[in-house]
Design a protein around this nucleic acid. Structure first.
Lengths: 332, 332
DNA sequence: TCCTAGCACTACTCTTTTTCAAGTGCTAAC
DNA sequence: GTTAGCACTTGAAAAAGAGTAGTGCTAGGA
C-alpha cells in the first residue's frame, strides 16, 4: 500500500503527463506537495521500484507505467461531474427529437472525438428484441426489385435483388407466406424459421423456389450481421505519441482490421478500461468502453486513445452518453 | 516542338520518376537512349529551360515539372489496354449479379484504391430520371414512425421521425394525398410540388398541418442531396510525398472538406486530368476524374494521388469502370 | 528518522563539422 | 553533334561538441 504522499505524487504525475505529454520532473510537482524536489525524487524512486513509474532515459523525468495508470484508474481517479461545456455540446444532440437513436449515437461520438481527439468505435447489433414486423417487395423494372424489411423497433433495411425469369405471382406468394408465418419472430431467428417453415411450403407450391428462397435467405442473413462504425480515426494524427507515419499506419490498420469486432467484446455491464497490453487492439493505446442496450439495439461503445488519455473526462463522457442513449427511447 | 529524342527523354524521366520517386539522373537513361550521359545532360538542360523539368537542388537529377507532366499527358501518353491482372480483379465485382449498381461502384473503387494506393472519390447524385414511386409510413411505437420513400429507379431511403400528439388518421390522409398527387414527379421537384400542391390542401383539411408538412419536407430535402463517398483515404500514408504528419493532416482535411463537392465538378463528358495547381483540392496532387451516368444515378468518379501518379494505369482503370458501370444496367 | 541543500553525473537535444557520394555543367577533343 | 574528363555543388549521414534538464547520492540539520 502506498502512503498518502505517494498517492498524491503518483496522481500528480499522471495528471501532469496527460496534460503535457512530457516526462514530469520532481521540480514541477514539489510546490504542490509542499516539500523539496529531493524528497519528491526519492519518493519517485520508490514508486519506480514498485513499477508504477518509468523513465524514458537515465536523467529524464518520470512517466507513468502501465501499472501506474492502472493504479491511478483503480485507486486515485474519482467520479467527476461532466463539465458544463462538454454537456452543453452533447445536449444539442440528445435533445434533437427528430434524430433516430442510432443517429444520436453516431453524432454524439463524433462530438466526443472532436472534443477529445480520440477515436470512437460503435459496435452495434440489432437487439434480440427486434422482431420482424413486415417485409415488402417493390418491383422496379424487369427482374429488378427491392426487398424492404422492417422490425417492430423501427429498423429498416432494404436490398436490391435480381430475380430473373420469375413471375411476380410467385414472389407475391412467398412474401405473403413470410408475412403470415414469421412476422413477430425475433430477427435473428428469422433465418432458421425461414428454412424450416417457409422452405418446405414454397418448395411445394412455388416454382423456382430454390432461387426465391436463397434470395430471401441472403436478405435476412445480412440484416442480422453486426455493424461497426468508426468515428474520428483521423484524430490519431493529432496525438504526439503517433508522430510518425509508420506508427499511424500501423494503428490505422489495426483499427480497420476485420477482426476488430472480436477485440472489443465487453465482459461486464459497466465501463471498463483496458490500458496498453490489457487491450487487444494495440499495446500503445488505451481502450475505454461500455456496453449499451436500448429497446432496439445493443452493442458497445469504445473510445481509443493513447495510454496518456484523459481518463476522467472520457469516463464521464461515456457515462453521460450511455445514460442518455438508454433513457432516450423510454423518455418519449 | 520537341525533337524525337527530347520526347523520348522526357517520357523516360516521367515514367522512371513515377516508378521510383527519386530524381532521375542522366546515367539512368543514357543506355535506353543510346548515347552518352553527357548528351542526355545537355538535352535535360534544354528541357529544363523550357520548363518541362526541374531540379530539387543544383546537383540533383531531374524531376518532371507540372508542365512536364502536362506535356506527357497531352502528347506522350497513349491509350493502353487494361492489364489482365487489373481486369481480373475488377471483373469479380462487375460480374456479381446480386450487387446493386452503387455497391458495384464503391467496391470497384475500393479495389482500385487498394491496387494503386490512391484515394477515390465518388460524387453521386440521384438522377433527374428518378421519379417518386411511392411513400409509406410505418408506425412503430407511440409517436415514433418511419417514412419510406421509393423511386421508380429503385432508390429507397427511410427516415425515423417523431410526430408527437398527432393522430394516425391525419398522417394517413397526408400520405395518401402525397401518393395520389405527386407520385411520378422527378425526385428533385418533389419539394416544390409538396409546397405548392400539398401544403395548401393539408392546411385546410389536416390538423397540425404545420408539423406534418415540415416533417415530410425534411424527408424529401435530405433525399435529393448529393452524396459523396471517399474510399481509400488512408492510402495517402503510403505515398512518399506525404511523409510527414503535417502534410497528411493537411491533405486529409482538404479531402474531408465540406466543400469538396464543388471542387470536383466535371466540365466535360470524358476523363479529365488536373495536375497540381490545375485542380482545386491541393497543389501537390493530381486528380483524374470522369463523369458517369446510369439510368438511376449520375455523378463523378475521381482518383486523387500524388502528381507522380501512374497516369496510364489510372486512366485505363477509370475508362474500364466507367464503361462497365454505364453498361451494367442495360445488360440485364 | 525524515527532510533538504549541494554537487557530480548522465543522456538527450540542438547545432556544427566532417565525410561521402551522386550528379551536374563545362570544356576540349573527336 | 557527341563524348570523355574533371571541377564543382549539394544533400544526406555520421561524428563531434555545447548546453541543459533532470537525476542519484551524500552529508548535515530538524
Amino acid at each position: 500500500m502506498l502512503t498518502e504522499r505517494q498517492n498524491e505524487i503518483l496522481k500528480l504525475i499522471v495528471l501532469e503527463y496527460i496534460k503535457l505529454a512530457h516526462p514530469v520532473s520532481s521540480n514541477l510537482i514539489c510546490d504542490t506537495i509542499h516539500c523539496s524536489s529531493a524528497t519528491v525524487r526519492s519518493e519517485m524512486a520508490t514508486l519506480e521500484e514498485m513499477g508504477l513509474l518509468e523513465k524514458t532515459h537515465t536523467s529524464s523525468g518520470r512517466i507513468p507505467s502501465e501499472k501506474g495508470y492502472r493504479y491511478y484508474v483503480d485507486h486515485l481517479m474519482k467520479a467527476k461531474e461532466i463539465t458544463g461545456e462538454d454537456m452543453l455540446k452533447l445536449q444539442t444532440v440528445f435533445q434533437n427529437q427528430n434524430l433516430a437513436l442510432s443517429e444520436c449515437l453516431t453524432q454524439s461520438l463524433e462530438l466526443i472525438s472532436d472534443m477529445t481527439s480520440y477515436t470512437s468505435i460503435v459496435l452495434g447489433k440489432k437487439s434480440h428484441e427486434n422482431k420482424l414486423k413486415e417485409i415488402s417487395v417493390v418491383p422496379i423494372k424487369d427482374s429488378h426489385m427491392i426487398v424492404i424489411v422492417i422490425t417492430d423497433q423501427g429498423h429498416v433495411e432494404h436490398k436490391d435483388v435480381e430475380l430473373p425469369n420469375i413471375s411476380q405471382e410467385e414472389i407475391k406468394k412467398t412474401v405473403s407466406l413470410i408475412n403470415d408465418l414469421i412476422v413477430g419472430t425475433p430477427i435473428d431467428e428469422v433465418s432458421s424459421k425461414l428454412e424450416f417453415e417457409i422452405k418446405p411450403i414454397i418448395s411445394r407450391y412455388v416454382k423456382e423456389h430454390e432461387l426465391i428462397y436463397n434470395t430471401f435467405y441472403n436478405v435476412f442473413r445480412d440484416f442480422t450481421n453486426k455493424n461497426i462504425n468508426i468515428v474520428g480515426k483521423d484524430h490519431i494524427l493529432e496525438q504526439p505519441e503517433f508522430n510518425s507515419i509508420d506508427k499511424v499506419k500501423d494503428l490505422f490498420s489495426k483499427i480497420d482490421d476485420k477482426h476488430l469486432v472480436d477485440k472489443i467484446e465487453s465482459d461486464n455491464q459497466n465501463i471498463s478500461i483496458y490500458i496498453g497490453k490489457e487491450n487487444k487492439i494495440d499495446n500503445d493505446v488505451t481502450v475505454i468502453q461500455t456496453p449499451y442496450k436500448t429497446e432496439s439495439e445493443e452493442g458497445t461503445i469504445a473510445i481509443v486513445g493513447p495510454k496518456r488519455m484523459d481518463y476522467d473526462r472520457v469516463v464521464t463522457l461515456l457515462e453521460y452518453i450511455k445514460e442518455n442513449i438508454e433513457e432516450k427511447k423510454e423518455g418519449e
